[in-house]
Design a protein around this nucleic acid. Structure first.
Lengths: 222, 222
DNA sequence: GTTATCTTTTCTGTATACAATCTTGTTGTT
DNA sequence: AACAACAAGATTGTATACAGAAAAGATAAC
């Protein structure tokens, strides 16, 4: 694997995981030494991250990990709404229905697991990743897939900032299951509307969690 | 301006203008010499173009200008549908209505000009650019704006491949005018639906034009 | 005490040199 | 004649050195 790829992957992981929090200033020399690569591949990684919207190059000061706020979360959801409703519609028209029928069963079977504490969250996230992959495969639109992937990276970052409780995860799983059902039956309109509903509720849940998190951070400062 | 920016801008312009047609293989040394920059900034430009989806890095062979086909045009329109309907909805809710009322007048006044031959096309494209800018300003969502900008670059490339005749341009202008009207009156549903209609018809028109163009190219080969 | 300017230092942007990998052409063998 | 292996060439990926610009700090003047 290329050094620039390693640097990109590592930095992206660390940003998404919150190990490099929003506002962190990244120097070229500093980071190239830390990651064990020279400045050339590191700059390549920086450029890709900037194209992803994960960092912003501030004139003179270096690159800064981009901010996360209630506003940016809302912006993200507005894009998701447009993109994922369309994706759900297309998937309903084009998907291999068997794949989504099996996925529906998996959602059904995992419901009890999701409520079961710490491990439950992992089950949920793995299932969601499977759902995303199935969508990508179904829509047969590489351009849309790359756009979706970027959105998902940003969402992963938001989720890490504010993890949800099992009850909320189960709620989200049920909403997603309805989308899966709509796609499995080829009901494009329902797939789009169910996605709208899911995103609306998800936005509420995530906003609440982020609000709490930000309040906690402010408390610590005070 | 930085050398990497110049290289990026130049290459993007040339790809969009069709001077570097799809399938063209770009060597690093070759292009760096042609553009008068060293390989380092040129590679930066290549990376940005690859992130934009304008070129694909083929293992070993170098980078290749990405293909344009009826399929990729359809893919592009599917993304536009999701994104621009949402953008129109948001604009209807948030726009400064005065801006769009004035824009409506401009569309109205330009109708005769658009039908008037060669210069007409320029009037049309300038007005469309104004419309895009007004949308970007109205939606107040930087993340969505960057995504839209990328889509528009790809669309510009498609349009250059197959220019339309004045009658079709006027049709497109009328459709866009209805979107403007909906936004000016704050009618989000109409804005979204008018956008859907416009994209549907635009897709038909562009597909037909691209089909012709591709047929012509095949004729030349034979 | 404040402000302005100059100097020092750090950082970014670019060029180039070097190493490793992949391509392609040629030669030899079956 | 066809296929495989090897060698020559080209091309990409990485490191590093250098130049230019910008920021921070210190010193001097008002």
């Amino acid at each position: 694997m290329r050094a620039s790829d390693r640097a990109y992957r590592k930095l992206l992981d660390e940003i998404v995981a919150g190990e490099l929090p929003a506002g962190t200033v990244l120097g070229e020399v500093e980071q190239s030494e830390r990651l064990g690569v020279s400045r050339t591949p590191l700059r390549e990684a920086f450029n890709r991250l900037a194209a992803d919207g994960m960092i912003n190059a501030e004139p003179g000061r270096g690159v800064v990990v981009s901010q996360l706020s209630l506003e940016t979360v809302t912006e993200l959801y507005e894009v998701r709404e447009g993109l994922e409703e369309q994706a759900a519609r297309l998937a309903a028209q084009r998907a291999d229905k068997e794949v989504f029928k099996k996925l529906w069963d998996e959602f059904e079977n995992s419901k009890s697991l999701i409520l079961g504490g710490e491990l439950g969250a992992n089950v949920f996230y793995e299932l969601n990743a499977k759902f995303d992959d199935a969508i990508d495969e179904a829509i047969q639109n590489p351009y849309m897939v790359t756009t979706l992937k970027n959105v998902r990276n940003h969402m992963a970052r938001v989720r890490k900032l504010a993890r949800s409780n099992p009850a909320r995860l189960l709620e989200a799983a049920s909403e997603t299951q309805l989308i899966v059902e709509a796609i499995a039956t080829g009901d494009a309109a329902l797939a789009a509307h169910a996605t709208h509903v899911h995103l609306h509720k998800s936005h509420s849940r995530v906003s609440a969690a982020v609000r709490e998190q930000l309040a906690k951070l402010n408390k610590e400062v005070a």
